[in-house]
């Protein structure tokens, strides 16, 4: 299938998804479940990755900027800006594209091949809206919190390097992460995360919704969802960065 056919089908699917639910009661029953599944259950991986990356980034930045001309606070500053600008939004979303994308694509794909989606359609339910909208809404709603959480935990990871090693002093690190802080970077990161959250959930839902065949095809749908949403994330990262930072 070519890219234009995929884009067309994706657009048509989104037209069915992004409408008011048949029954708000059913939407609000699904929404908290999705918040828990897509948001809360992602917290452990966000914590683990952010704390380690924060720590590693601090060590590497320090080792690569061993220059008496550079101020001592520069390690904290670079760590903070890298976390804010790129890691906690883009890299975190690329990782979550694997976790959340495969989860959504395989769940909806399994419903497709076991005829559960056909059953919804036969009942007269807008299956795309009923199944996909709560997932997109929940993930887009959760993502900014995950990003802010990742920033905080990542910075804490760098702080731990100061506490448990002699790579950097905690005083230098704390000064660095506060120095020349630009709040706009947080806004930029949050805007990116919202777009990426929509891409991850909608692209994964698209591949799951149009899965056909058997278990093997659900696996393929999951893989396609992860690969294509990752490519789209990188593309939109470039686009948004150009628009907001250039």
């Amino acid at each position: 299938m070519n890219i234009f056919e995929d884009a067309g089908r994706y657009t048509l699917l989104m037209r069915r998804v992004l409408v008011f639910p048949d029954r708000w009661k059913m939407f609000f029953r699904q929404f908290p479940k999705e918040l828990e599944k897509l948001g809360l259950q992602s917290l452990p991986i966000v914590i683990i990755i952010s704390i380690f990356i924060g720590a590693i980034m601090t060590i590497q930045t320090k080792l690569n900027t061993e220059n008496p001309l550079l101020p001592t606070y520069s390690t904290g500053l670079v760590t903070r800006d890298t976390l804010l600008l790129e890691f906690s939004s883009t890299i975190l979303c690329l990782i979550l594209a694997g976790k959340i994308g495969s989860n959504i694509a395989s769940e909806i794909g399994t419903m497709r091949i076991t005829e559960q989606i056909d059953a919804l359609e036969i009942m007269g339910v807008n299956s795309a809206n009923y199944l996909i909208l709560p997932k997109i809404a929940a993930f887009v709603f959760t993502m900014p919190f995950l990003v802010i959480f990742s920033m905080a935990v990542g910075l804490f990871g760098g702080y731990l390097v100061g506490v448990f090693s002699d790579v950097i002093t905690t005083a230098d690190y704390l000064l660095g992460i506060q120095y020349a802080f630009i709040p706009y970077y947080v806004l930029y990161s949050l805007v990116k995360s919202l777009v990426f959250a929509f891409i991850i959930s909608s692209v994964a839902a698209y591949y799951g919704y149009y899965a056909s065949g058997g278990a093997l095809d659900v696996g393929k749908a999951s893989t396609n969802a992860v690969v294509n949403s990752s490519i789209l994330i990188l593309f939109f990262n470039l686009l948004i960065t150009n628009l907001m930072l250039n």
């Binding site: 056909d118 059953a119 359609e121 036969i122 009942m123 007269g124 339910v125 807008n126």
Partner: peptide, 9 residues
Amino acid sequence: RILRREVGM
């Protein structure tokens, strides 16, 4: 969709 509410499968 309205018709399908009269359908069971």
